[in-house]
């Protein structure tokens, strides 16, 4: 049906905020950031074009290389552990256990808390003189040692522990929905065939849950790219620069080190990486015909 002029104006006015956000914030800000990364802007933006020099500087910067290394380690461990634990929790709950609602609430409540809170809590728990190490020693394990958070080689694993604690419940919720969506006939057929339960899960159920795994993995991955609060509150990037992450690198160089050129080069690198990962996923979803 054709729209009258007033209707059209109404529709346009309703879509104005979205259009503005799209043009000014997303397209405008992104191109500006990309352009700044090609200049030698320091404290204030300027337009002195220097080609890709900021990128050369970036990839010879120790702190950035540490950040990238850390985010890869964190990303791989966080996503795989959260998927594994979340899936196991969902399978456990799906065995028709008692007090299902309570158990589910316990697994999921950390997800309602902020990364700042998560980081601070785990900072205390992992503190060697106060936390888990102290408890183990007081229980008689005199040689027990759990001082990962104060050692540069292992600090990043502490972020993984905290992150997994916070996010596994989310994976559990997604996986449980996936498991409950599986047809009972499949279970009956498997039981008739005498397959043990674990075989059914590995050979039949997991392959059927591709969509749940993909949704959870993508959600977790976006959290990886945004990883900032946790590093700030838990270790503040330390000890030294041992647990620095890319998002923190950008923020510090924008607001503390007054190096806009380098910061925007880092931000643009993050953007390109995200697009390289997300584009195939969105294409895959579009191909599957999900209109979302």
């Amino acid at each position: 049906m054709r729209l009258s002029l007033t209707s059209r104006l109404s529709v346009l006015s309703a879509l104005l905020p979205a259009l503005m956000v799209m043009l000014v914030v997303y397209i405008g800000a992104t191109s500006w950031t990309a352009w700044m990364s090609l200049t030698n802007s320091r404290m204030l933006p300027n337009n002195n074009f220097v080609g890709f020099r900021q990128y050369q500087l970036l990839f010879s910067n120790d702190r950035w290389l540490t950040s990238v290394h850390n985010i890869v380690v964190y990303g791989v461990l966080f996503v795989s552990l959260a998927l594994l634990i979340g899936f196991l929790l969902a399978v456990a709950i799906d065995q028709r256990v008692r007090a299902e609602d309570t158990i589910r609430s316990i697994y999921l409540y950390p997800y309602s808390m902020s990364f700042v809170v998560t980081g601070l809590v785990w900072q205390w728990l992992l503190n060697p003189t106060l936390g888990v190490q102290y408890v183990l020693r007081s229980w008689g394990f005199a040689g027990a040692s759990f001082d990962w958070i104060v050692r540069p080689e292992t600090a990043i694993y502490c972020l993984v522990i905290a992150g997994v604690w916070q996010a596994s419940g989310l994976v559990m919720a997604i996986m449980l929905a996936g498991l409950r969506g599986i047809d009972d006939e499949i279970w009956k057929a498997a039981r008739v065939d005498g397959l043990p339960k674990w075989r059914v899960y590995i050979s039949i159920i997991i392959p059927m849950m591709g969509a749940s795994f993909a949704t959870a993995a993508v959600l977790l991955s976006t959290a990886v790219v945004r990883l900032y609060d946790l590093s700030v509150s838990m270790t503040n990037g330390g000890p030294g620069i041992a647990s620095e992450v890319p998002a923190k690198f950008v923020m510090d160089h924008l607001f503390e080190r007054a190096n806009i050129g380098l910061a925007t080069a880092a931000a643009t690198t993050m953007l390109v990486t995200v697009i390289a990962v997300v584009a195939p996923y969105l294409y895959w979803r579009a191909r599957k015909g999900e209109v979302r």
Binding site: M22, Y26, T30, T33, P246, A247, M251, A267, V278, L282
Partner: peptide, 15 residues
């Protein structure tokens, strides 16, 4: 709009 939901804040913040 769905695509930009994935983009890290760091790209937008300074502009």
């Amino acid at each position: 709009m769905m695509i930009v939901a994935f983009i890290p804040y760091q790209v937008f913040i300074y502009p």
